[in-house]
Amino acid sequence: MRTAGISFILALLISVTGCGQSEDAVKISLLTGSGKTAEYARTGNNEKIRIAIGAMISPRKTFVLYENLFNFIGKELGQPIELIQRNTYTEVNYLLKENKVDAAFICSLPYVEGSKDFGIELLVAPVCFGKPEYFSYIIVHKNSPIDSFEGLRGKTFAFTDTMSNTGALFPIYSLARMDETPMSFFREYIYTYSHDNSIKSVADRIVDGAAVDSLIWEYENRNNPVYTSSTKIICKSEPFGIPPVVVPAGIDPVLKEKLKTVFLGIHEKEEGRKILSMLMIDKFVEIDDSRYDSIRTMYDFTASFKPRKKQ
């Protein structure tokens, strides 16, 4: 009886004290290694088709939005796609120039620049709201009294990327036409490097106004109007050639054809249509280079612009 009691207590103690140590630890040495430094694994993979996207919206959003499309394209091609992003349009253009990517979704102005400087070629262009066109919206906070571009004089303003058509070229061009520069016209201006950042900046009243891509504003306004609902459009540009999908100058013609075929056929498949509709793209079409002439005009004008009045 006594022995039984003692055994019971011992068993209890062992079970109680033993609980904490029941976890199994994996024995491992952290001081011995292969000697390799961290591999920057995402460069130099030859098996994947590398498609870059210019930073129209934040890289995270871009990744999430385009993941399905890229997976679909990869499946159609029979080759996996690697999505490449960079902080700026310039960096993406550099990848195109150096042939480090096979294709790229870029903004219209970088295309105009890239085609002129190192011969990038148009592959396809998306059709949004029925046309392969888009606009630049000048937006202010919805409670702001400003109702015209002129009204932003002496205010703060957000551009997106220096190489953005809608987010920079158009407002700068508009200012040049008014014999103004951002420096002379605005009290202060910033570069946000993505359209959604610009929208957010206006909504949060960090800046008084911003120039944004109409496609992105409309997309946000439809799917997630948290920020767009706090903004209003006070000025809309003429239509521009929509940001295209381009290929570098030295691309393998076979790959170019393959890519073009895939892009043009996406909307013909049920799954492809679904993916496109989520991106608010009707379909991909071939596009003529002349659609970007208006941008070329603005670019040339702005590049050669010298304000006559004193700064």
Binding site: A38, Y40, R42, A55, P59, R60, F63, Q85, N87
Partner: peptide, 9 residues
């Protein structure tokens, strides 16, 4: 994730 996406290792 941003740095990975833009390959800023």
């Amino acid at each position: 994730e941003h740095l990975i996406l833009v390959d800023d290792m």
